[in-house]
Simulated scan of single mutants.
Amino acid sequence: MRRILRAYLLAWEMPELIDAAGLALTELIANVVRHVPGRRCSLLMLRRPEGLRVEVTDACPSPPLSTAVDELAEGGRGLLITEAVTDRWGWQPLTGGGGRTGKTVWFECDAKAQR
């Protein structure tokens, strides 16, 4: 997924976002692997006039873990890292018909102004 993200960012002429967006994407996918039964999710990458938005949607209705972590804990830093390397992040519960449950966790990275 990081390679795909990199290819899109290069095509969109936003190479400065590759490292931060790649790291944040890795952290969100790692959270799915660790915390979502069935380890399934969908990924949406959106080019925006101001940069990039990435959304990871899964079927687990539980909110993402807090960014407040124990310094000695072995895990729990994924969202802290995401917050540190992106311009914005957040989450929203899925709302829709058919009894569908889950959430979308997203982040945005702003592209640097062209000189």
Rank of each mutant, 00 (worst) to 15 (best):
E50A: 12
S62W: 04
M45H: 02
W106Q: 03
A24Q: 07
G90R: 09
A111N: 00
V33A: 11
D110Q: 10
L25K: 04
G38T: 01
A21P: 06
M14K: 11
L10V: 01
M45L: 15
P64F: 06
P37S: 08
L52H: 03
R34V: 09
E55W: 05
A59V: 09
G38M: 01
S66G: 10
V36T: 15
P63T: 03
R53T: 08
T67Y: 02
T101H: 10
T86Y: 03
G22W: 00
A20N: 14
P15Q: 00
R77T: 12
K112F: 09
V36H: 13
I81V: 15
D19T: 13
T82A: 15
E13V: 01
Q114P: 06
V56T: 07
S66R: 06
T86Q: 03
L52C: 04
I81A: 10
V54Y: 05
K103A: 07
T82W: 07
D19R: 15
L25Q: 08
L17Q: 03
G98I: 00
R48C: 07
L17F: 03
R2T: 11
A73D: 13
P49A: 10
L23A: 14
Y8H: 15
L28T: 08
G102V: 11
A30Q: 15
R77C: 06
D19E: 14
Q114F: 05
P37N: 05
H35S: 05
E108M: 13
E83N: 12
L9Q: 00
L94V: 14
G98S: 00
E50S: 10
G102I: 04
F107G: 06
Q92V: 13
T26G: 13
R2I: 10
D110P: 00
T26P: 04
L17P: 02
L65T: 09
L17G: 01
L44M: 12
R48N: 01
T95H: 14
T26F: 11
S42Y: 04
L43T: 08
L43N: 06
D110V: 07
P37T: 02
R34K: 15
G90Q: 09
P15K: 02
T67K: 05
M45S: 01
G96N: 10
R100T: 00
I29L: 13
A21F: 05
C109A: 07
P49C: 04
G22F: 02
P15L: 01
R88Y: 12
L43P: 07
G51W: 03
A21N: 08
L65C: 05
L65E: 11
Y8R: 14
A59R: 11
A73Y: 03
A7V: 01
R47W: 04
T104N: 01
S62N: 12
K103R: 15
P49G: 09
T67I: 12
M14A: 13
E74N: 05
S62V: 13
R40V: 10
L43M: 09
